[in-house]
């Protein structure tokens, strides 16, 4: 798989955070990018678009990123969901691992780390 083929769902309640990540994805040549502004929308967009990779914030209105991760994994046990959050605490990490998160990225986001995760997911 190449960057132009991968489908990524970006879930963050901050328009600014989404814009930053979208710009970085675009700079890599990724074109299939879907966005969700809360946990509920993230689950809906996942079901609708079946992305190869999801970047999910934790602190979001309506449904938290952890709850959205749980719902997505119930729908698709092979879903690759990367938790991208400012609150990478021990308990959140444990919860995310137990629920089957693919990886964890602490905000402020390190572009190099994100690129590495995407490359691994494309293998």
């Amino acid at each position: 798989m190449e960057f132009k083929d991968i489908r990524i769902l970006l879930c963050d309640d901050s328009m600014f955070a989404r814009k930053k990540l979208r710009m970085f994805f675009s700079s890599l040549g990724i074109v299939n990018i879907f966005e969700a502004a809360d946990g509920e929308e993230a689950v809906e967009k996942y079901k609708e678009n079946k992305p190869d990779l999801v970047f999910m914030d934790i602190v979001m209105p309506k449904l938290t990123g952890i709850d959205a991760l749980k719902a997505i994994k119930e729908f698709d046990k092979d879903a690759k969901v990367v938790m991208a959050s400012s609150v990478g605490t021990q308990s959140h990490l444990k919860q995310a691992i137990v629920l089957g998160a693919y990886d964890f990225v602490q905000k402020p986001i390190d572009d190099a780390q994100v690129e590495k995760i995407i490359r691994n997911a494309m293998k």
Partner: peptide, 21 residues
């Protein structure tokens, strides 16, 4: 959010205090 997140992570890693935002 980023500043508070880093603070919460420090408290968790250094003192085992679990906090939420």
């Amino acid at each position: 959010n980023v500043n508070n997140g880093l603070f919460v992570v420090n408290e968790s890693n250094q003192l085992g205090i679990e906090l939420s935002l």
